[in-house]
Design a protein around this nucleic acid. Structure first.
Length: 421
DNA sequence: TCTGGGGTCCTAGGACCC
DNA sequence: TCTGGGGTCCTAGGACCC
């Protein structure tokens, strides 16, 4: 048996933990640059606010309805996520962290009553220790546990746990479960299936395997088997290392000048190098890209990228910056308003298995020592306290975050003060 | 004024090998 | 009429996830 534990409206719930006054009030969280709605409390959903809606289009509506609006605070959400996952670690032998707010647990060996009670224990413990509400779905495959979680969240809101283990229950639930809500069925497949008169999970489950294989590839076959109770998607208890790492941002203002692009690209290269070192990997290919604003078709448009192959795979900040900036200079064209830029690293290999080059001229030992020293200082003193000058100091292009909440759990200066008097 | 930022997997087709 | 039979690797594009 699998349990899927999913935090309810995670980002909105994180903000609410530190603003108890907002209990039962509508809350939304915006994407970077305060662009789109990416999280909504139940009250905000009830007002009809859509996921992904551009904030500027509903500004007046938000005001009229007293909606609390937050910029996204990933330091806070990341730390709250870590706390939730740590609690789950203590409760379960085997788990898979599936996303920032979701985890699968392996519940082999529990009987029905224990399964349900364990679900409640999880929910109560997390609520008590972190303030975050979660829903728990329990079933015999991952796909069915996702379905069960939906039911727990939507129809069993006060209990928050749904155990789906009897064939009769499964059949009844799948009969009313829209095909587009199944894990692995996105918009394209949903439209396609509906055009073939398949509207519910039960109808999909009863479709011929050959037909599904032909039109939805092997992924679809797995889905119908999982809906039928045959587990095809195993637990991944060990998080596999990333095969691609991307750091990119839209700018708070339009950027025309190459000097500012250079600053931003250098920062993204720095972040990519940090992410590589964190998972003990080196990258063989760097991809630098710049884009103008696609929402302004009246302005001249220019999108381009440059792929750089490294002679020796690297996790060095200085080397990644060097090549990224050269790449930028190769594609930059003056006279455009740039809106977004980024760095992607791929061809990732474990640091212990880097293929050396006979013609490599770089002094890697020294560079590694420098990088290590910078990492140690920055981890104690704060990100970018020591940085390469090319990263810049003004950051005119930085994100717009007008409603940013404090980093309550990760920054000493932002700790809450509680008046007990 | 204003529209996010990360990832994965699968398949077909083209290139190559013997 | 009639032109083999078996592979691998790489990439772009399309689907999906949070």
């Amino acid at each position: 048996m699998f349990a899927l534990v999913d935090c309810n409206n995670f980002y909105a719930s994180c903000e609410r933990v530190f603003h108890p006054r907002l209990n039962h009030k509508p809350i939304i969280v915006l994407s970077n640059n305060d662009g789109c709605v990416i999280a909504r409390s139940n009250e905000a959903k009830a007002l009809g606010i859509k996921m992904g809606e551009p904030a500027f289009k509903i500004k007046q509506f938000l005001k009229d309805n007293n909606v609390a609006v937050f910029s996204s605070n990933y330091a806070l959400y990341g730390d709250m996520s870590r706390r939730v996952m740590n609690i789950l670690w203590k409760l379960s032998q085997e788990m898979e962290i599936y996303s920032i707010d979701e985890a699968f647990l392996d519940l082999s060996g529990f009987n029905d009553r224990q399964l349900f009670e364990f679900g409640q224990t999880i929910r109560n413990t997390i609520k008590q220790h972190t303030g975050i509400p979660v829903s728990v779905g329990v079933a015999s495959t991952k796909t069915l546990s996702k379905v069960a979680n939906h039911i727990a969240k939507k129809h069993k809101r006060d209990i928050g746990v749904f155990l789906m283990n009897e064939n009769k229950t499964i059949e009844r639930v799948l009969k009313h479960f829209p095909v587009e809500d199944i894990w692995g069925i996105g918009r394209q497949y949903a439209n396609f299936l509906k055009s073939h008169n398949i509207h519910t999970a039960l109808e999909l489950k009863n479709t011929s395997e050959n037909w599904v294989r032909k039109h939805l590839t092997v992924m679809g076959t797995r889905i119908i088997k999982e809906l039928d109770g045959t587990s095809c998607i195993p637990m991944e208890s060990v998080t596999p290392s990333k095969k691609a790492i991307c750091t990119s941002r839209s700018f708070g203002v339009m950027v025309e000048d190459i000097a500012q692009l250079r600053e931003s690209i250098s920062m993204y290269a720095t972040r990519c190098a940090e992410k590589l070192r964190k998972q003990k990997s080196c990258a063989g290919i760097i991809n630098v890209f710049i884009q103008t604003n696609r929402f302004k078709p009246e302005l001249p448009q220019y999108n381009n990228g440059k792929i750089i192959k490294l002679q020796v795979p690297s996790d060095s900040t200085s080397e990644l910056i060097y090549h990224s900036v050269r790449g930028l200079e190769a594609i930059y064209k003056p006279g455009y308003n740039y809106k977004k830029a980024g760095v992607i690293v791929t061809n990732i290999v474990p640091s212990s298995q880097v293929q050396q080059s006979l013609f490599d001229k770089m002094d890697r030992a020294t560079d590694q020592q420098i990088t290590k020293t910078i990492d140690v200082i920055n981890s104690r003193m704060g990100r970018d306290v020591i940085r390469y000058a090319v990263q810049g100091f003004n950051r005119k292009w930085k994100l717009r975050q007008e409603q940013l909440s404090p980093c309550y759990t990760t920054r000493w200066n932002d700790l809450l003060t509680i008046n007990t008097g």
